[in-house]
Nucleic acid binder design. Structure first.
Length: 421
DNA sequence: TCTGGGGTCCTAGGACCC
DNA sequence: TCTGGGGTCCTAGGACCC
C-alpha cells in the first residue's frame, strides 16, 4: 500500500498562510510575467474563473468579483513545500517527493489504521504549516492518484480516501472518468473513448495485449496499475538529469541584439547554477529566440553549441551564447522569448576525456563555486557584466507577496495588543 | 500593451553496421 | 544488381505531467 498526500490548491493556499484575512476569499495566482492564471483556490473555482486564461483578458472580471490576484512567489511556495515534506517524512519509513505539492509515502509493512493515520497527517500539516492536504491510499501509485481525486471531490470523504479492498476498487473505478486517470490526457481520452472506453474500470478490464498494440505500453501499464498490479516502482526518479532548460518570456518585446544577448546570458547563468548544483558538466547546448506565436511573422531560430570539452564555466560559455545570438539575430523581428537548453550532461567526476582537448581549469571551477556560494547567501550579487542591462525586460511580478519565510526583511510581524512581539 | 515554465517517456524512422 | 535479417544509435515529434 502507498499513500499520496497532496496540497489543496498549493499556490493559492500558500498565499493565504500568512494572510488570515484572505481565508474564504477567492485567490488566483499568475504565471511568470503575470501572463496566465495558473492556480486558484476553491472559492475562485466556484466563481468560474478559467484556468490558463491570459490575465489581461480577465483583469476586469477579477477585480469586479473581488478576486485577490498574486504574481507567483516561488521562493515562498518552495520553502513551505520543503517544510511540508519534512513533516510528512516523519509519518512513513520512506517518502518520494513527486512535485512541489505532492509526495508518495510507502506504507508497506505497516499495520495501523490507515484512515486514522491519514487524519493525523491532515491535522498535523494544517496545524504546523497552515496547509490543507488530502490523502489517497491504494495498492499502486495510479490507484493512490484515483483515491486522492476522490478525497478531493467527495465532500463526505473529508480529505481521505482509501481503496483497500476489491469491492471498493470496483465501485470507485466504475464511476471514475477516464480523463481523470493519471497518464491519460486529452488525446488518449479521445482515442480510447472512440473504442468505447470511458471509465477507469473499462480501461482496467480491457485486454492488455490490445492496449499495448493499439495504444502504447504506457496505456497498458496504466490499466494494470488500475487493476492493482504494480508497474511503477516506488522510487522511479530518473537516475540522472538529462537536460536543464531555462526559457522565459520577456516583459516586453525586444528588437535589438544587446538586450536579447543580456537576457539569454542571464537564463544561461540560471541553468548553469542548476547544472553545478547537480555536479554536472554540459557538453552541448541549444540557444533559441522567437517572436510571439500570437502575432504574424512568427520567427523562431535556434543554434546548437557543441563544446570542445564538458564544462560548468558560465563565463566561457556565455561568450559562445552571445555569439550564437548575434549570428541568429534578425533585425526588425520582435523577440518575446529566448531559451537555453543544456543537454548531453556529464558527471563532474566521470566523463569520457578527450586526450587532445584541454580540460576546464581548476581555477574556473573554483571561481564558479565561489560565485554560487556568494549568490546563495547574498541573493545574486555576483553576475556577468553583460547581463547588467537586462532589468528593463526582466520578468514582471507586479503583485508578488512578500517572501515571508526566506527573507529577513520580509518576515511577518505579529502584533499583540498594539505591540510588536 | 499584455497569452507560463520545466520536465519525462515512448515511438517511429533513418543511418549505419555486420 | 538484387536480396535478407538483425541490431544499435540517434533524432524529431507526440503525449503527458505538475
Amino acid at each position: 500500500m502507498y499513500a499520496l498526500v497532496d496540497c489543496e490548491t498549493m499556490y493559492a493556499s500558500c498565499e493565504a498562510v500568512f494572510r488570515p484575512d484572505l481565508r474564504g476569499k477567492p485567490i488566483v495566482v499568475l504565471s511568470n510575467n503575470d501572463g496566465c492564471i495558473v492556480a486558484m483556490n476553491n472559492v475562485a473555482k466556484r466563481l468560474g474563473m478559467p484556468m490558463f486564461e491570459p490575465y489581461f483578458k480577465m483583469k476586469n472580471e477579477l477585480s469586479k468579483l473581488g478576486v485577490h490576484v498574486f504574481s507567483s512567489n516561488y521562493e515562498l511556495y518552495g520553502d513551505l513545500s520543503s517544510r511540508i515534506m519534512d513533516t510528512l517524512s516523519t509519518f512513513a519509513a520512506d517518502i518520494h517527493v513527486y512535485s512541489i505539492d505532492e509526495a508518495f509515502l510507502d506504507l508497506r509493512g505497516h499495520a495501523f489504521d490507515k484512515r486514522q493515520w491519514s487524519r493525523d497527517i491532515i491535522q498535523t500539516i494544517q496545524r504546523d504549516i497552515g496547509m490543507p492536504v488530502r490523502v489517497g491510499i491504494g495498492k499502486t501509485k495510479t490507484l493512490t492518484k484515483v483515491a486522492n481525486v476522490v478525497a478531493k471531490k467527495v465532500a463526505r470523504a473529508k480529505g481521505v480516501c482509501c481503496i483497500d479492498d476489491e469491492a471498493q476498487r470496483e465501485k470507485i473505478l466504475k464511476i471514475f472518468p477516464l480523463s481523470e486517470v493519471w497518464g491519460i490526457g486529452r488525446k488518449l481520452t479521445m482515442r480510447l473513448g472512440a473504442e468505447g472506453i470511458t471509465t477507469a474500470w473499462q480501461l482496467a478490464e480491457a485486454d492488455k495485449t490490445y492496449l499495448r498494440k493499439n495504444f502504447s505500453v504506457v496505456v497498458e501499464r496504466t490499466a494494470l496499475e488500475l487493476q492493482g498490479t504494480e508497474c511503477i516502482p516506488f522510487h522511479d526518479e530518473p537516475e540522472d538529469k538529462k537536460q536543464i532548460v531555462v526559457s522565459r518570456a520577456f516583459s516586453k518585446p525586444i528588437t535589438e541584439v544587446k538586450p536579447l544577448q543580456a537576457l539569454t546570458v542571464d537564463y544561461l547563468s540560471k541553468a548553469m547554477v542548476k547544472l553545478r548544483k547537480h555536479r554536472l558538466l554540459v557538453e552541448t547546448l541549444v540557444v533559441s529566440a522567437s517572436s510571439s506565436r500570437f502575432a504574424d511573422a512568427y520567427v523562431s531560430h535556434h543554434k546548437v553549441i557543441k563544446l570542445a570539452v564538458p564544462s560548468n564555466d558560465t563565463l566561457a560559455i556565455s561568450n559562445k551564447v552571445t555569439e550564437a545570438i548575434a549570428a541568429m539575430f534578425k533585425p526588425n523581428s520582435k523577440y518575446v522569448r529566448s531559451m537555453v537548453c543544456l543537454s548531453e550532461l556529464r558527471d563532474e567526476g566521470f566523463y569520457q576525456k578527450d586526450l587532445l582537448a584541454e580540460e576546464q581549469t581548476d581555477r574556473s571551477m573554483k571561481l564558479m563555486a565561489v560565485m554560487d556560494e556568494i549568490n546563495k547567501h547574498h541573493g545574486n550579487q555576483v553576475f556577468i557584466g553583460s547581463t547588467g542591462i537586462k532589468s528593463d525586460w526582466a520578468m514582471a511580478r507586479r503583485m508578488k507577496s512578500p517572501n515571508y519565510t526566506t527573507s529577513w526583511a520580509e518576515l511577518p510581524i505579529i502584533k499583540c495588543e498594539g505591540r510588536v512581539v
